[in-house]
């Protein structure tokens, strides 16, 4: 594993309380600084659990997570929040809050309990709003935003933390093509221009294939493949993990990502994933 990695994960195991099944079983990988790293896998394969372990919200039963050379238990929550901005899967927010208030919360780790927001803080908030193209929405209540706007507001909050690393859990779920692309373009820009490290959990295999530098494919809590997209998204691996026959094509372009592997699920199959004409039923 590289010495200067953002995240270094070794032999991570975890089981939820009261469950005998391991939610994560021997996961190891490293995320180099400034790369866009995606974690993919079917529902229930342990993607979100892995993120929670990376972020110290859950404690591993075995193995360890090292961030920027220091094992996770050695980080205070506040120091970690100055390093890592997180966009969790959106829960419902019960009380009226404006977009600006949500984004200002990103300054919490820099201010603490009593600090008063100063010029730097306001500048960070303004820049985050601009970066996510929601300056015009700043005074709108979060509850009145569309799914795409809301998601950008949560990304803006993470950016207001001015993090070295950004961790996102399915940020483009239920977004249309344009909003989905905007988020991925923003993440690509952050890694290229600002050298931010991005760790992303997503179900969008094809977008992940085009934007990710490396990816981890999880299968029932265990790593099925790890590496650059064209090594991970091979037909046999994807079919086996997802239980559905696929063809693998190449993105036709134009664009810098022309040729990236694209997964095309095949029709005419029964739910077990066996071809209908396969005879077994």
């Amino acid at each position: 594993m590289s010495a200067g990695a953002a995240f270094e994960v070794s032999d991570l195991c975890f089981a939820y309380e009261g469950s005998s099944r391991l939610a994560l079983d021997g996961v190891s990988f490293a995320v180099a600084p400034g790369v866009l790293y995606t974690v993919i896998g079917p529902n229930g394969s342990g993607k979100s659990t892995l993120l929670k372990l990376l972020l110290g919200a859950l404690q591993p039963a075995q193995g360890r997570v090292v961030y920027a050379g220091r094992p996770l238990p050695g980080w205070s929550r506040r120091d970690l929040a100055r390093q890592i901005g997180v966009v969790p899967q959106g829960g419902e927010i019960m009380f009226p809050v404006t977009v600006r208030e949500i984004v200002e919360m990103g300054r919490y780790p820099h201010l603490g309990l009593l600090g008063r927001p100063g010029r730097l803080d306001h500048a960070a908030v303004d820049e985050a709003l601009e970066r996510c193209d929601i300056v015009g929405l700043a005074d709108r209540p979060l509850s009145r935003l569309s799914g795409g706007e809301r998601q950008r507001a949560l990304v803006a909050r993470a950016l207001a933390q001015q993090p070295a690393t950004l961790v996102l859990d399915e940020p483009t779920i239920s977004l249309d093509i344009r909003h989905e692309m905007q988020i991925f373009e923003l993440l690509a820009e952050l890694t290229r221009q600002d050298s931010v490290t991005v760790v992303l959990v997503t179900h969008h295999l094809n977008l992940a294939a085009r934007y990710a530098d490396r990816m981890l494919l999880l299968d029932g809590g265990a790593p099925a493949a790890e590496g650059p997209p064209n090594q991970v998204l091979r037909r046999e691996a994807v079919e086996q993990v997802y239980g559905w026959p696929v063809a693998v094509g190449a993105h036709p372009g134009p664009g810098r990502d022309a040729g990236a592997p694209q997964i095309l699920p095949l029709a005419g199959t029964d739910p077990s994933g066996e071809p209908v004409d396969g005879g077994a039923s």
Binding site: L55, A57, S76, R77, R78, D79, L80, A81, R82, I84, G85, V86, P88, G91, I93, M94, F95, V97, E101, I102, M105, G106, Y108, P109, L111, L113, Q161
Partner: peptide, 17 residues
């Protein structure tokens, strides 16, 4: 301020420090 963060979600609050 911590209550602000907590009111939008415990996980979010944790990640904000």
């Amino acid at each position: 301020r911590p209550l602000n963060a907590l009111s939008v979600g415990e996980e979010t609050a944790l990640y904000l420090g």
